[in-house]
Design a protein around this nucleic acid. Sequence first.
DNA 1: TGGATATACGTTATAGTATAACATAGCGCA
DNA 2: TGCGCTATGTTATACTATAACGTATATCCA
Lengths: 131, 131
Amino acid sequence: MAQAAGELTLNQSQVLGHLRAANAPMTAYQLLGRMQNDRGAVAPPTVYRALKALEEAGLIRRIETLRAWAPVATVRPGVVVICDDCGTVRGVEAPGLLESLHERLVAEGFAEARKTIEVHGRCGDCAEDRA
Amino acid sequence: MAQAAGELTLNQSQVLGHLRAANAPMTAYQLLGRMQNDRGAVAPPTVYRALKALEEAGLIRRIETLRAWAPVATVRPGVVVICDDCGTVRGVEAPGLLESLHERLVAEGFAEARKTIEVHGRCGDCAEDRA
DNA sequence: TGGATATACGTTATAGTATAACATAGCGCA
DNA sequence: TGCGCTATGTTATACTATAACGTATATCCA
Ligand SMILES: [Zn+2]
Ligand SMILES: [Zn+2]
Ligand SMILES: [Zn+2]
Ligand SMILES: [Zn+2]
């Protein structure tokens, strides 16, 4: 079943669909449950293969501190902000910040390959709910 | 065996000792192996309890992208820089950077509780080795 | 045309990470 | 002495991820 570059397989687009439909990151086994609802017997490697392909395609990322996965669309560019009350995750643009860190490391001879920046706390909406 | 505030139990100081003696972060099960060498039968909760107490005491942190643990002394203030070749981890001071991100989030009404910033790549030494 | 190769997926098993739940032992103190 | 607190022991289990092998199908080209 060779795949044209840039196209998703059924497996991959189902996983991506579930992630996009969710309002919070999903764990691999939550996705597995959804896939089993859709299709009957599905085993973990099926989900993990889709996650790997989608990540390599730049369509999703793993939220390390949640051990869960989110579409990059909801998490854009580098800084991931997570509300521990409502579970929502969003991306914050901070290009200057990322660039200055990058320069810092270059100056020390470090060749940067991958950055993870995740901030936990409570979002404005949840703070209001407690007020 | 009630414990005076600020003192470590034997269990905790053994775990901390192993982490401080290592030149790279250790996984919980690597620590478990060391503890078993030291003491015979040891089960996972023993290690995880020590890790939790040490983390709450501010003495260690979990390196999320490695699923492993390191003493804060080697990882100081916020930005964790990890060489994927030699496995070493160090902390980089970047107070301005952290502060500007903090202000950014405050301005949006987000109450920050915990930040994880981890950068993977190749350190200067390892780059030289390949030259 | 037909065989070599490559990719995706199925299937089974297992590795690796973390916690729940309950039992025991020592200590401080009413 | 009896009670409550904390740390640890012990057993079992939950949760996360990958190894290994098999099958089907598409593609390439001799
Ligand atoms: Zn579905
Ligand atoms: Zn919230
Ligand atoms: Zn030891
Ligand atoms: Zn290195």
